[in-house]
Amino acid sequence: MKPERTKPKLAIALGATCSGCDYSLLDLGAGLLDVTDQVEIVYWPTGIDSKLEDLQAVPDRGVDLILFDGAVVNEDNLEMARLCRKKAKMLAAFGSCGAYGGIPGLINSGSPKKILLEVYQGLPTRSDKAEALNFEGEDALPKMLGQAYSLDQVVDVDVYLPGCPPPLKLVAGLLTDVLAGKAIPKGTFYASNRAVCYECKRVKENKSIDAIHRYHEIQPDPTRCLLEQGIVCLGPATRGGCDAVCCTQNQPCRGCMGALPHSEDSGAEMMSALASIMELNNENKEADYTGIFDGLNDPLGTFYTFTLPKSILGRRKVDQS
């Protein structure tokens, strides 16, 4: 007699996240029920009444797929990441936060611990009451790590679903593959291996510009490449898979799908590309190039919106004073 196949186990765990990634699963519509029919969800705090003990009770490597939604910013996130690695057969970095650090990664522009203290400065001093309640003790303030990390900077990751949020068809792709028992090589990205530009329907003519415009300063030609109109679009340095939705909405790509396979630092790639095409169409005079990027106020925010922790430098210089 053939043994009955048990349902694969799925878990969705949260780090430092806005929860948009797992919440967007509801937009699968009725298709969500097709998925939940076929899996046993052992843990998903946003969606069901699961307790941490439920996840801890599973034998090691007993959860077929764990989607880790979020960056790692405090010690709680770190412990959760380690628990998930322990319990997962396949661990996925779910969303740009897990894959690259995401928007929470912008805290690396400063020092998380310093920022936390600044925010809570001027707090009422601890009273006896507070001590007795064990309320203002160690437990009270979150224990920030020195910086925000992507998931694979703290544990081993098997598969990546970048995007903010990941395009639903890519998420569906991973779920389908796991349910079918398909072998997924370690390190697989559920995203295109080619740049966003290949999916963008805008017409590309000639990459040579003489000025940079912020996207709100001009109303661009809706048919032509945004970069060619002087708007800083990270498409050339960013993985596709998203159907270039931002460009379709007349806004530049901000790089949420992360670096292309050959590159370690999508921000630096794009800085290089932008500098290359900023030719001014002028006689080659050195003076003409001085200060040409004065209008680009914030390279950190512009080129590393979603990917700062995963970039080569990763975070602002540690203040050693």
Partner: peptide, 9 residues
């Protein structure tokens, strides 16, 4: 007890 720091960054 959580914190992400939007008002700062």
């Amino acid at each position: 007890v959580e914190f992400k720091g939007f008002e700062s960054f």
